[in-house]
């Protein structure tokens, strides 16, 4: 084997692909040729230097931090704030808000609130909000709130019945869709009621149709939701 043939086989040798008699020839030439010895050592040095040399430059200390910051800022909202995490946080926030809201609102709400427009016809509406002191526990406050809600629903249903009765009493001309709350006041104003009552009903209805109708049409105190028919006798149109 001569030097030219040797050099042609260097790659195969470095890749571990030389075997058998060719490898033997290669090694034999390497032993007797100083030039090829140096060539081989040079090439083996290339491998070791490239493999193990540390880079001349080094990464900044805050490299990882910067990468992670970039990743976080570029992540879509839905990934950054996964639904389960959002649900837990939102639940906690809502709970806290509910507790704070109840603690602030309930004790301050008056047991009986005067109704402005109804003063014209001498009507006040009793609101059966229980008096709750801040010292009572959350459970008591929640129970009271539920009771108030139940009472309001019952009262609203009673009012609905009474207004329907009044519509029929007026001649049954109106076929009102009372599910359309904002129109209730308009229907009421079309009934055969005095002008000031109709006006008051319309005005109040814009703010709260049910309360508006109640205060305009029913000059009575509604203390118990279960007793609306008896109360209906006390007003006049």
């Amino acid at each position: 084997m001569n030097c030219a043939e040797f050099e042609q086989l260097i790659d195969s040798y470095l890749d571990g692909e030389l075997s058998g008699s060719l490898r033997l020839e290669f090694d034999a030439h390497r032993l007797r040729c100083r030039r090829c010895q140096l060539t081989m050592v040079m090439m083996e040095s290339v491998g070791s230097v490239v493999a193990s040399d540390r880079p001349v430059a080094a990464l900044s200390d805050d490299f990882t931090e910067r990468v992670m910051e970039t990743i976080e800022t570029r992540r879509p909202w839905s990934v950054r704030f996964r639904p389960t995490r959002v649900a837990i946080v939102a639940g906690a926030v809502l709970q806290a808000a509910a507790v704070i809201g109840l603690a602030i609102w309930l004790p301050l709400k008056p047991a009986v609130e005067p109704v402005g427009p109804a003063e014209n016809v001498g009507v006040t509406v009793a609101v059966d909000t229980p008096a709750v002191t801040p010292d009572e526990g959350l459970r008591d406050r929640l129970a009271s709130e539920y009771a108030v809600q139940d009472s309001r629903v019952a009262r609203r249903e009673a009012l609905f019945d009474m207004i329907m009765a009044k519509v029929e009493e007026a001649g049954g001309v109106l076929v009102a869709d009372f599910s359309d709350l904002p129109n209730l006041a308009r229907y009421a104003s079309a009934l055969a009621v005095s002008e000031d009552v109709a006006r008051a009903s319309t005005r109040l209805g814009e703010a709260n149709p049910w309360d508006g109708l109640l205060r305009a049409l029913l000059p009575l105190e509604v203390e118990e939701p279960e007793a609306p028919p008896a109360a209906a006798d006390q007003h006049s149109l």
Partner: peptide
Amino acid sequence: GHADAFQQIVEAFKD
């Protein structure tokens, strides 16, 4: 989507 896991990967391969 665990960013902390990817941080480990960055640390392992950055150099």
